[in-house]
Computed example of a mutant assay.
Amino acid sequence: MDHDSPARRDQRGASSAEYALLVSLIAVALIGAVLAFGGAVDGLFDRSGSSVSDLP
């Protein structure tokens, strides 16, 4: 006897599709943030590194 009715399988499929959409949107947001702020963070680390290397 199969306890998974077709309606229950549809809900489970919808949940996995929603999770996949959520994960893809988070990935797009992370890529956008890296592209937007990557240069600024790189410059910050360059300045910090030169400040430390200039210490006596």
Rank of each mutant, 00 (worst) to 15 (best):
M1W: 12
M1H: 08
M1E: 05
M1C: 07
D2H: 03
D2W: 05
D2Q: 02
D2K: 03
D2F: 00
D2V: 00
H3D: 14
H3K: 01
D4Y: 03
D4M: 06
D4A: 11
S5L: 08
S5D: 15
P6R: 13
P6E: 14
P6C: 10
A7I: 06
A7W: 07
A7F: 02
R8C: 05
R8K: 09
R8T: 08
R8H: 00
R9V: 15
R9N: 04
D10C: 11
Q11W: 00
Q11R: 07
Q11N: 05
Q11L: 05
Q11V: 10
R12G: 12
R12D: 09
R12Q: 04
G13E: 03
G13S: 00
G13L: 06
A14E: 02
A14F: 04
A14P: 04
S15T: 15
S15H: 07
S16P: 08
A17N: 11
A17R: 03
E18R: 10
Y19F: 15
Y19R: 12
A20V: 04
A20L: 07
A20F: 12
A20T: 05
A20Y: 08
L21D: 02
L21Q: 04
L21C: 02
L22I: 04
L22T: 04
V23D: 13
V23A: 10
V23G: 14
V23T: 02
S24F: 04
S24A: 10
L25G: 06
L25K: 07
L25V: 03
I26G: 13
A27L: 07
A27V: 08
A27Q: 11
V28P: 05
A29W: 00
L30Y: 02
I31H: 05
I31T: 13
I31Q: 10
I31V: 14
I31S: 15
G32A: 15
G32C: 12
G32Y: 05
A33H: 01
A33P: 09
A33C: 06
A33L: 02
V34A: 08
V34E: 15
V34D: 13
V34F: 01
V34M: 08
A36I: 06
A36K: 02
A36M: 13
F37L: 14
G38K: 11
G38C: 09
G38P: 06
G38E: 09
A40R: 04
A40C: 01
V41E: 07
V41T: 02
V41S: 01
V41I: 05
V41K: 04
D42K: 09
D42S: 12
D42M: 08
D42I: 01
G43E: 15
G43W: 15
G43D: 09
G43F: 10
L44D: 01
L44I: 00
L44T: 00
F45K: 07
F45T: 06
F45E: 11
F45Y: 14
F45N: 14
D46E: 03
D46T: 04
D46S: 06
R47F: 09
R47Y: 04
S48V: 10
G49E: 11
G49W: 06
S50A: 00
S50L: 02
S50T: 06
S50D: 09
S51R: 14
S51V: 07
V52L: 15
V52G: 00
V52M: 13
S53V: 07
S53H: 09
D54C: 01
L55W: 11
L55T: 05
P56I: 08
